[in-house]
């Protein structure tokens, strides 16, 4: 069980995390979605005890991470964004060290290390050092280090960053399997597809604040059954806003001289009317795209920016 309440982390005048609060129950995957620099890693650092929150509270299986760090950390597994591996040691030695650091010993430790190596599909390469691994294999070993002690809570900070699609799919399977065992998972990412595919509930974070939170269905409902239409060209924002406002079931998300973004219900049918309105308002059109409702649409609706910006 993860409980985060009013979490705030401030460095001088810079507020990195501002009043973040959420929870994730047993066996649930909670996604924290946001662009780079939004505050995801700082949130995870506060939750793992690496950073002391300026304000707010984090409880891991009921234990406060600041006041009961040892009890909380005992239940916690962390898979950081960067690969935290000893490149010259074998995969088995890496796992053995982490298992011992988390308190495992003797036969139990050896059995558990073998079991995790098999679980992540690296048993046949257990004697090789990570420096001889591919990027995807390193990511799987990194994941294995975080779960070798069978934590009740798992914090995953963009664990698929920079891996190929096949390895990503395999890692996501591992995360699902971990949740199926009853582990509460916090998963941060800026890949929307991952969040949609994996998480039971999620929150969108930007500039340190949660701007939306709920299940995938709830978040989609916030967007409505509307497609995202993006038109590139040359426009006069002052003229096109009132022109587009007259269209039914549509909302201008952003409008500047080079592009216009709208949320439109049934865009395929409404597209001619949209283009006509833009042309009538003096716009010169070069390119048009539209996508189905997604978290990206929601993020754009809420922030006016694309998630990967």
């Amino acid at each position: 069980m993860i409980e985060v309440d009013g979490l705030r982390k401030q460095y001088g005048d810079l507020v990195a995390v501002d009043g973040v609060g959420f929870s994730a129950g047993e066996g649930k995957i909670f996604g924290l979605l946001g662009p780079n620099g939004a505050g995801k890693s700082t949130t995870i650092s506060c939750m793992s005890g690496l950073l002391t929150p300026t304000d707010g509270r984090v409880r891991i299986m009921g234990h406060d991470i600041v006041h009961e760090p040892r009890a909380a950390k005992q239940q916690l597994g962390v898979v950081p964004q960067e690969l935290a591996l000893y490149e010259d040691l074998s995969a088995r030695d890496n796992l053995t060290y982490w298992a011992a650091a988390y308190g495992l010993s003797g036969t139990g430790l050896r059995d558990r290390v073998d079991s995790v190596l098999e679980y992540v599909g690296l048993l046949d390469r257990a004697s090789d050092p990570p420096k001889a691994y591919s990027g995807g294999m390193k990511r799987r070993l990194n994941f294995a280090c975080g779960v070798v002690h069978e934590p009740k809570v798992l914090l995953l900070d963009e664990p698929t960053a920079g891996v190929d699609p096949q390895s990503r799919a395999r890692l996501l399977d591992l995360v699902r399997a971990q949740a199926a065992k009853g582990t509460s998972v916090l998963y941060t990412t800026h890949y929307m597809e991952e969040a949609q595919e994996l998480c039971d509930s999620l929150a969108i974070i930007d500039h340190g604040k949660l701007i939306a939170m709920g299940t995938l269905a709830e978040l989609r409902a916030m967007v409505g059954e509307r497609d995202l239409v993006r038109v590139v060209g040359h426009f006069d924002p002052e003229r096109i806003r009132p022109a587009l406002a007259e269209l039914p079931d549509s909302e201008v998300l952003t409008a500047d001289q080079d592009s216009v973004m709208l949320a439109v219900k049934g865009a395929a049918l409404q597209l001619p009317a949209v283009l006509q309105a833009l042309a009538a308002a003096g716009g010169h059109l070069r390119e048009t795209t539209f996508t189905e409702p997604s978290l990206e649409t929601l993020f754009m609706k809420l922030t006016g920016r694309e998630l990967r910006e």
Partner: peptide, 12 residues
């Protein structure tokens, strides 16, 4: 290599 960040989640 940021190993210490993970180490700190297990050890003081």
């Amino acid at each position: 290599n940021r190993v210490v960040e993970v180490l700190l989640s297990a050890t003081a």
